[in-house]
């Protein structure tokens, strides 16, 4: 008998094993849902899968009577706009300050303590300030995402920059590089894949801040819709929306992972299991 740490499933087996927990959760839900519906056909708490599919389909295909928009797509579009704008701005700031902090000791001495303190402020606690400062429009929501995840990105990239072997910086200097060139050609390209990796991790928080901001003040958006229909106990809308958000988050995450593997093969050279 081989040791447990040496036993690995085959490729097909891995898919099946990965699917298993999902199947179990689905089965548990089906049985609970049908049990409740058998008792009370008007139960709203655990709607039947068919009901959810119907509702979701109508939200994805029928125009809203009042606004003339198709709700699901309008919500998705505005939420994604906010999320992507927030994440893109954060990534840009994070990369810039991360490189500067990691590469230039004189600037690190000035900025690093500030970043550490800022990263400890709970972003939700300053949401009211953002609403007061930027109004309840798009700005405040994007700002919340930026404030929420930028400090994390900066700290992560700064750490990565400091972990680069000194040998590389010395070598670049012996090859005639000046400070700016070394930041551009040694630090920047080596931190970019790390930025993708840490952005993947930060996406979870980004979604959290987005939904929170939408829940409080918005006219449309995935988070807004969920919190709106909560008043009517419309689990048949909420559950598919949650699944939809999860799917979007998963696709974004995979897109970043895939981009990173494609664009920076050298960064992924030492990864073990590729699954």
């Amino acid at each position: 008998m081989k040791r447990m740490i040496n036993l690995a499933p085959s490729r097909g087996g891995r898919w099946l094993l990965g699917l298993l927990p999902f199947l179990i959760i689905a089965m548990v839900y089906f049985s609970l849902s049908s049990a409740r519906l058998a008792e009370n056909p008007n139960d709203r708490l655990l709607p039947a899968p068919a009901t959810m599919a119907d509702t979701f389909w109508s939200m994805a295909s029928e125009e809203n009577v009042r606004t003339g928009q198709i709700l699901l797509w309008a919500d998705t579009l505005s939420s994604l706009e906010r999320l992507l704008a927030g994440v893109a701005i954060s990534a840009l700031i994070g990369l810039t300050i991360g490189i500067i902090n990691g590469g230039v000791p004189m600037l690190r001495a000035k900025l690093s303590p500030l970043v550490t303190v800022l990263s400890l402020i709970p972003p939700m606690a300053i949401l009211p300030i953002l609403f007061i400062a930027f109004g309840t429009g798009e700005m405040a929501k994007i700002a919340l995402i930026v404030i929420g995840i930028t400090p994390f990105l900066i700290r992560d990239l700064q750490g990565e920059a400091l972990r680069l072997p000194d040998e590389q910086l010395i070598k670049a200097q012996t090859l005639g590089g000046n400070s700016w060139q070394i930041l551009c050609r040694v630090l920047l390209p080596q931190l970019t894949p790390r930025l993708l990796a840490s952005t993947r991790l930060a996406l979870g928080s980004a979604w959290l801040f987005l939904i929170a901001a939408e829940a409080i003040a918005a006219q449309e958006g995935l988070g807004y819709r969920i919190f709106l229909v909560r008043r009517y106990l419309s689990m048949d809308v909420i559950l598919p929306y949650v699944a939809w958000i999860t799917l979007l988050a998963f696709l974004l995450d995979q897109a970043l992972a895939w981009t990173s593997r494609l664009a920076f093969p050298w960064y992924h050279a030492n990864e073990g299991d590729k699954s």
Partner: peptide, 27 residues
């Protein structure tokens, strides 16, 4: 160890010095 740049190909690594010399702005 760590003498070459992991993010550059063989050609890129060797060109590095030449690029530093000719492009002061971006390297």
């Amino acid at each position: 160890k760590y003498s070459v740049f992991p993010h550059l190909t063989v050609l890129g690594n060797v060109m590095f010095a030449e690029e530093m010399r000719h492009s002061r702005l971006f390297g």
